[in-house]
Amino acid sequence: MSNIEAPILKILSEYTNKNLTEFAVTEPFENIGIDSLSLVEVIFDIEEYFDIVIPNESEIADKGFSLRCLGDVYQLVNALITEKE
């Protein structure tokens, strides 16, 4: 998991002025300065970095995941990388 945390944190930090390390991974995105517009860009950057495709919201939900907080992103990216491998 730690292999993916650092690059994801770096990507997210480009879209907010808040210090992400000060927040729990369960903190909702809106509380850490990531709005829905920024999340679209964050998803794009993550896809580019890890060479994965993050499905749309309903497909994510069908697989039992969500994208409401950093912890959600870690779980989903981890699953997608594992799936790819």
Binding site: E14, Y15, T16, N17, L37, S38, E41
Partner: peptide
């Protein structure tokens, strides 16, 4: 501009 602003 900040980096997030410049992206848009």
């Amino acid at each position: 501009f900040t980096a997030p602003q410049l992206k848009q």
